[in-house]
Nucleic acid binder design. Sequence first.
DNA 1: CATCTAATTAGAAAAATATCTAATTAGATT
DNA 2: AATCTAATTAGATATTTTTCTAATTAGATG
Lengths: 212, 212
Amino acid sequence: MQLDKLVTFYKALGDPTRVRILAMLANGPLHGQALAGKLGVTPPTITHHMAKLRDAGIVYERRDKNTIYFYLHEANMKRQTQAILNVLERAKGTMEEDLFADEETKTIQEQRRSQMAADQMHVIKSFLTPDGKLKQIPAQRKKKLIVFEYMVRGLEFGRKYKEQEINDYIRQFHDDYATIRREFVMNHYMYREEGIYELNPEEMWAKAEELR
Amino acid sequence: MQLDKLVTFYKALGDPTRVRILAMLANGPLHGQALAGKLGVTPPTITHHMAKLRDAGIVYERRDKNTIYFYLHEANMKRQTQAILNVLERAKGTMEEDLFADEETKTIQEQRRSQMAADQMHVIKSFLTPDGKLKQIPAQRKKKLIVFEYMVRGLEFGRKYKEQEINDYIRQFHDDYATIRREFVMNHYMYREEGIYELNPEEMWAKAEELR
DNA sequence: CATCTAATTAGAAAAATATCTAATTAGATT
DNA sequence: AATCTAATTAGATATTTTTCTAATTAGATG
């Protein structure tokens, strides 16, 4: 559900009233009445906006008697503002089109540079056959993650996959799709909910860092 | 019109379809048909989304024969993702509440630290009387800007002011409001459109950098 | 110039969003 | 228990947004 989270965050910032609220909170916490007064809106409107900001992880609140003070969650903000950049950075490394490029897009694809570091590329080459099959699942954790990351890059960010689709995808690389699918989830490359799988770009990115 | 610009940017990122488009463009430019195909939507839908992304300065396009390729505007993205953080940073320095704090918020206000550097504070003190009047407009550009920045911090980000309101505000500091109002605009602290004034936080912030 | 392709515009329908008023709830305080 | 205060919920309305189909436009190209 990572796409949703990212979208929720930016959507929360995509409203002038909420941005003004945040600018006020930058001066220190304020309660609902104060915000309503300064902005010239009614308390229910504040409740509405604060719910959005809270859901996005942008503010948190603390109660003092009957009054609820809202605080900027600065660390969360700083982290999340970057989210889209992380997604794009990760998307750049995707090999999907390199592997299955059709005539239409080939020349454009060729213009770009892969983002994958040379030593990671080396690990990958050593575990894949020339036609892209996985010889074996690396035993060493670090190498295993490099290979998984490579494999998972062929999946599309933000798309929901049925288990069957994941199996078929993995089978391009290795027959033991069940093990690998489980590993994907265990290592947080994918997220599973009610039998539906989705890429987890945030975690993947954190992993990419760790591998360097 | 800076608030609008910021909101337009984040709003553009607040839609799952658009985020997926961006993830695809991170691999290199694509044309409308290709995007429509990959996403399973119709061309008009792509036109709609690309207009939003273009307005937000997130993509640009280049034509080749009948085909229009969309490119990620990465530099713009990187700069603009930070925008909200800049606004908040600037808002923190606002002295409005220090100067006019009412009983209600005083203790909270006291908890926070001013962001204004010590040497800037020194310049300000030397040009203001104890009751907050401006003795004279500094002749030295750098000092003048420090004082203007201080003054302008009492105005509210994102709010539209009539000329009369600006005059009244400035008169707290100095009788020659006309000169100072003109200076505010000339130095890009404020933005003027059809007789309505609004703070220009982006420029102000750039200025704050320059002063350090 | 007739035709093809990709993109855009127009216009409609459905969904989501922002905001208000009125009513209700959750916690203090008397 | 009765009363206050701040916040929330419910429900209504106006606006904005997403997406579609059908029609139109802008450029190439035979």
